[in-house]
Write a protein that binds this DNA or RNA. Structure first.
Lengths: 150, 150
DNA sequence: ACCAAATAGATGTATAGACATCAAATGTAA
DNA sequence: TTACATTTGATGTCTATACATCTATTTGGT
C-alpha cells in the first residue's frame, strides 16, 4: 500500500490540507528519484534537460537568460549557471545580444537537439509508467493541482 | 489563472501523465517557496524542521539516524548531516547507543520542542492558506497522490 | 575463535535551490 | 547632459540532494 501515513510512518495529520502538502513533498521525491536514474547515463541533470526543452520551444530563435528563468519549473533556480554548464558540454551557444548588451542570447545547438530528442522519448515513456493512474485520474489530478495554486 | 500551461508557457503536453509530472514539479516549487519564507526568521530549514517533528513523534524515546532517514519525506537526504546541524544549534542531543555502538541515539531537547511548537502552528496555518482547495478536494488529491505512487 | 558479509553512520564531491550582492548597460527625469 | 533608478546577468555563500566511499562495529557461518 502506498498510503502516505505508512510511507513516512506518521499516524495522522491535522487536516487534509496539511496532509496534502506533506503528500506533495513526498510524491515529488518519488518522481525525482525515478527521473534521476534516467538522466544519469547521459551526463545531464533534469534541470538542465528542462532548460534544453525551453530553448527548443523557441523554434530556432535565441532566448535570453531571464526568459528561460521565467519558464522554468522552479522560479528560484539559477538559469545563468545552468546555461553555463550546458555551454561547457556543447549543447547551447551563448552570444551577446546586439540590441541590448546587458542581455545574452542563448541558442540550442544541433548536439543539444539530438540529445534532447533521445532523452525526451525516454522521459515521456518513464512518466507514463511512473504515474500509476488512469487517464481520467491524471486529468483530475492536473485540475486539482492547478486549482491548488490558484 | 493558475493553469500549468500558462505558468511555464508551454502550449501542450504529450498526455495527462506527462502533464501531471510537470504539474507536480511546479506545484512543489510553489509550496516550497511559500514555506521558505516561514522558516527564514527562525534559523531553521524545512528539512531540519521535519527531522525535529520525527524526533518528537517518538515521545521522548531516542531515535537512530537510520530510523530518522526512513521517515523523512526525501529518502535520499542525509539525516546524519541534518542531525549534526540541529545539534550545533542545541535542538537535539546525540548519544552513543550502548547496545550497538554503531548506532547513535538522537533525542530532541526542550529548546527543540519549544521551537517546534512555535513553528508547527505557523506551518499548519500556512498550509491551510496555501492549499486553495475545498476540504473534499484536498481529500481527493491525497487519494490520487497515494494511488499515483502505488 | 575466526573471517567474510552486512550494517550504521560519517564524509567527500558534484549539482541545484535560495537569496544577497555586484557590475555593466539601459532608461528616465531634472 | 548629468544623476539616479532599473534591468540583466554573473557571482558568492549557505543549505540540501544524490550518490560513492570509508571506518567502525556487529552478525553469521565455519
Amino acid at each position: 500500500m502506498g498510503k502516505i501515513e505508512e510511507a513516512i510512518q506518521q499516524k495522522e495529520f491535522k487536516d487534509p490540507f496539511n496532509k496534502a502538502v506533506v503528500n506533495l513533498l513526498y510524491t515529488h521525491s518519488y518522481l525525482v528519484t525515478a527521473q534521476n536514474g534516467l538522466f544519469k547515463p547521459y551526463d545531464i541533470s533534469p534541470e538542465q534537460y528542462n532548460v534544453l526543452r525551453i530553448l527548443r520551444g523557441q523554434n530556432g530563435n535565441p532566448t535570453t537568460v531571464s526568459s528561460i528563468q521565467d519558464r522554468m519549473l522552479n522560479k528560484m533556480s539559477n538559469a545563468s549557471r545552468l546555461v553555463e554548464k550546458l555551454k561547457l558540454k556543447g549543447w547551447v551557444k551563448r552570444t551577446e545580444c546586439t540590441s541590448d548588451r546587458r542581455q545574452v542570447d542563448v541558442l540550442i545547438t544541433d548536439e543539444g537537439l539530438e540529445l534532447l530528442q533521445t532523452l525526451e522519448r525516454l522521459v515521456e515513456e518513464s512518466n507514463v509508467r511512473v504515474v500509476n493512474l488512469s487517464q481520467e485520474e491524471a486529468v483530475q489530478l492536473n485540475e486539482l493541482l492547478d486549482k491548488l495554486r490558484g
